[in-house]
């Protein structure tokens, strides 16, 4: 436990030195702020876009607050996930490449606390960044577009945060298994995209898959309480995250040349 905390603090320090604590939250904030503003100005932007015959009247249904917030989440699903994976791809892989890992494991260090600390620190920055961006998006949506029911927005935010945590867990596992940082990013993104794609194709079979989380968050914003049953998906997601971490620890123990202390 003490070791885990020690490693956790080391990770946090390293992320601060890498400027990750500045740029990752800022990018999430930017994404969150931009979507409501884009929706707000959309009629005007369309009007000034070229290729429109004179006198064209564009009538667009004004989106509700929930819809705009759901659009923000779908922005996070593309660019947010990309940013997260890219910022964390080197977590274990680059440490092993540079030899820092073998330096660490020359001492009796437990692999469990090593991986756990990496995961916890990654979750911390993810949660802070996402919550910051989401809060900004929420604020702007309420100011510019329209009201959102607080419980729905909170539920959607919580569900979506769990999806990002799942993404982080996948990245941690891949970062342990693949040795080049570029490879880590590619494999993680490919896995997440494939999982989302397959589970949208076979929605019945993958009803409880963690990849349903992002859709579920959007449903909460659109329909509120009449969204799909939530708790089953939450349980499978938390379970699969634990499984991913366990596999990561297993692979780490197999791969590390010296450190066999569990």
């Amino acid at each position: 436990m003490r070791q885990t905390i020690l490693f956790y603090r080391k990770e946090m320090l390293e992320m601060a030195r890498n400027y990750k604590w500045i740029w990752v939250p800022l990018v999430f904030l930017l994404l969150g702020v931009m979507q409501p503003i884009m929706s707000y100005y959309m009629p005007e932007i369309l009007q000034h876009a070229g290729n429109m015959p004179e006198g064209t009247v564009i009538s667009m249904p004004t989106p509700t607050g929930g819809e705009v917030l759901a659009q923000t989440l779908s922005q996070y699903s593309v660019i947010g996930v990309l940013i997260l994976v890219l910022s964390m791809m080197g977590m274990v892989a680059s440490e092993r490449q540079s030899g820092v890992a073998s330096l660490i494991f020359a001492k009796p260090v437990s692999i469990v606390s090593y991986i756990l600390a990496k995961w916890c620190s990654a979750i911390t920055i993810t949660a802070v960044s996402f919550l910051l961006g989401y809060a900004a998006a929420w604020y702007y949506t309420v100011q510019l577009i329209g009201p959102i029911q607080i419980t729905h927005a909170l539920a959607a935010g919580g569900v979506y945060l769990l999806w990002l945590c799942f993404v982080v867990s996948v990245t941690v596992l891949v970062s342990v298994g693949v040795s080049s940082t570029g490879g880590v990013a590619f494999v993680s993104l490919a896995f997440i995209a494939l999982l989302s794609f397959i589970s949208s194709l076979f929605a019945k079979v993958f009803m409880w898959s963690p990849s349903q989380l992002s859709g579920l968050a959007a449903e909460w914003l659109h329909y509120g309480e009449s969204a799909r049953p939530t708790f089953a998906i939450l349980f499978t997601s938390i379970g699969s995250m634990a499984l991913l971490l366990a596999v990561a620890m297993f692979i780490m123990r197999r791969k590390s040349p010296i450190g066999t202390h569990a």
Partner: peptide, 14 residues
């Protein structure tokens, strides 16, 4: 304004 300010902070940090 907030968008521009955030972008500026990002740029200066980089």
């Amino acid at each position: 304004a907030p968008i521009l300010v955030i972008q500026l902070i990002l740029l200066i940090t980089a």
